[in-house]
């Protein structure tokens, strides 16, 4: 099971109902949260990816278990999330972070991490960070990464405020990462 914020049971439903139900369920999902759609319709695999692209949400991926597809979609608001200012300094490139000595801290949602992350990266979703600071070593260099550099910018600021000193925001983030990916799902 991959952690998600809201779950939708669309099993047994035929096209176009999984899409219609997903559209309705999305209204109960907060921006940045992850919706899990459970469906048995084989067409839903291509359809939900296309739907996400059309309406501007982030399609994270699909895993299959015993004839049931588990689709993960993160709710986005293109106007606010992509245009957010990134203010944290210093920053570091993807390549420098991967080659560096420090810890890569991936602050994306658990589902995003599960469908592909940099080998060795540690996962703490941004929303959990303040409660999980004890898992991090303040003396260690930490490279904070997310999908586009926005969440990692905020996370880096939180870490700095908590007294961490060797913090870098990784830009451009996972969208620009072309190296090896480690996955937690098949």
């Amino acid at each position: 099971m991959i952690k998600s914020d809201v779950q939708l049971d669309a099993k047994g439903l035929a096209c176009p109902m999984p899409i219609v139900k997903t559209k309705k369920a999305m209204s109960d999902v907060a921006e940045g949260q992850v919706l899990e759609v459970q469906a048995t319709d084989k067409g839903s695999v291509a359809d939900l990816a296309a739907w996400s692209k059309t309406v501007g949400h982030q399609y994270i991926g699909t895993s299959e278990d015993n004839g049931v597809f588990y689709h993960y979609i993160r709710k986005c608001n293109l106007e606010t999330s992509e245009a957010m200012e990134k203010s944290f300094e210093p920053t570091i490139s993807n390549e420098e972070a991967v080659a560096g000595e420090g810890l890569i801290l991936d602050v994306r949602e658990v589902a995003e991490y599960a469908f592909g992350h940099i080998p060795g990266a540690k996962s703490i979703p941004m929303g959990d960070l303040t409660n999980r600071l004890n898992e991090l070593d303040p003396s260690q260099t930490i490279y904070v990464i997310c999908r586009t550099g926005t969440r990692s910018d905020l996370a880096a600021q939180q870490l700095k405020a908590a007294g961490f000193t060797n913090i870098y925001n990784v830009l451009p983030g996972m969208t620009g990462y072309t190296g090896e990916l480690q996955k937690e799902v098949q």
């Binding site: 096209c15 176009p16 899409i19 219609v20 997903t22 559209k23 359809d47 739907w51 059309t54 309406v55």
Partner: peptide, 11 residues
Amino acid sequence: FNIATAAAASD
């Protein structure tokens, strides 16, 4: 109706 509802559900 399939095309119509799918399109409407895609905003």
